[in-house]
Design a protein around this nucleic acid. Structure first.
Lengths: 153, 153
DNA sequence: GATGGGAATTGTACAAAGTACAAGTCTGTT
DNA sequence: AACAGACTTGTACTTTGTACAATTCCCATC
C-alpha cells in the first residue's frame, strides 16, 4: 500500500460542480461548508478515497475539520444515494461519487482502486425469495500495471 | 449485527472431513492440531465466519489457542488456495472453505453471509491490459428474510 | 533414547479504522 | 436578540488485524 498516487486512475472531475449546494439540497441534504468540500473532494477524483484520505486532503484548508464529521457526512451521502461505499480492500471503506453500477479493481500492492466497466444485470445470480437487495458490488483484486512493472524491476 | 445464528444459512458440512491431515499435506501445509481444527471449523459451516468467530468457537476446546495463530493459519489457507477471504462486510474479513466462484449475500442488519449462485463468466467486465487478476468477488448487501420479518414486527 | 534445529504457536504490544457521545458552535426563524 | 434544532468538534473507546520476540513442539539424526 505505498504508491497510491502513481496508479492508473486519472483525476478528472466526474460531473459539473457548478452548484454543489443546490445539488445537495435537491437530495435532501442541508449544505454546510464541510459537506460542500467533502462532496466536491469526492466527486472530483477517481481515486475512490477512504474517509481518512478525504480528511487528510481537506485538513490543510479546514484545519478544524474533524474525522467524525467526515465519517458521518460520507454516511449521510450514502444514505441519500449520492455516494457508494466500496468494501473492496477489506481493511477500510472506500467511497465513490459515481453511483451507477460498475465494477472495480483493487491493487493488492499499492491499494489503488480503479473503475472497470459495468455489469450485465441479466446474468447476475438471482436472489432467493425473502431477501431484499440494497446494493451490489463486483470487484477484482490483483496487481495493477504500475506495480507489475516495479515488481519486475 | 445481533441475530447471526438465526439467519438462513444451513450448517451442513461442505465435504468429507475423513482425513483432513492428508488433505492439508497434499496442499503443502504441514498439519498441526491447531490447523486441523481451524480447517475443520471452517469447512463444516456455511456461516462464513470471521477469524475471531473461529477463535471464539475453538477456544473452549483449545484454551491456549491464540488469535495470532487463527489469523496466520487462515492466511496460510488462503495462500494455499483452500479458503477464500470475503471483504463483504467492510469491517471484517469473512472466510469460506468453498473456493469455487460463487456470489454472496450479506445482511446489513444481522451480519449473516449466505451463499448465492455462481456467476456467468462471459458477462463479467474485461480487465484492461496490464492488470493481473488474482481473485474476484460479487456480493449483494441488504436485508435477509429473518431480519425482514423481525423488522416488520 | 538424547539432542539440535527449524517450524509452529503463543502472548504482548501496537496500529488502523471506525463509533459513541457529550459539549460546543452555528444557523435560521420568530 | 433569543431560541431551538441541526451540525461540528474532540475525546475516549471498540474492533479488527499485524509485528515481533520468546517459547514450545516436532522430527530427523546421532
Amino acid at each position: 500500500m505505498e504508491r497510491q498516487a502513481s496508479c492508473p486512475s486519472t483525476a478528472a472531475p466526474i460531473g459539473g460542480l457548478l452548484n454543489t449546494a443546490s445539488f445537495l439540497r435537491e437530495k435532501g441534504i442541508q449544505p454546510s461548508p464541510q459537506r460542500l468540500r467533502i462532496y466536491e473532494a469526492l466527486a472530483s477524483t477517481r481515486e475512490h478515497p477512504s474517509a481518512d484520505a478525504i480528511h487528510r486532503q481537506l485538513s490543510p484548508e479546514m484545519p478544524t475539520l474533524s474525522r467524525t464529521t467526515v465519517y458521518s457526512t460520507l454516511e449521510l451521502f450514502v444514505g441519500a444515494g449520492i455516494a457508494q461505499e466500496l468494501a473492496i480492500t477489506g481493511s477500510q471503506l472506500r467511497f465513490d461519487a459515481e453511483v451507477s453500477s460498475h465494477a472495480h479493481f483493487a491493487c493488492r500492492s499499492c491499494g489503488c482502486v480503479v473503475d472497470l466497466g459495468g455489469l450485465q444485470a441479466a446474468s447476475l445470480p438471482e436472489l432467493p425469495l425473502g431477501f431484499i437487495a440494497e446494493s451490489s458490488q463486483y470487484f477484482i483484486t490483483g496487481i495493477c500495471p504500475s506495480c507489475t512493472v516495479s515488481t519486475l524491476a
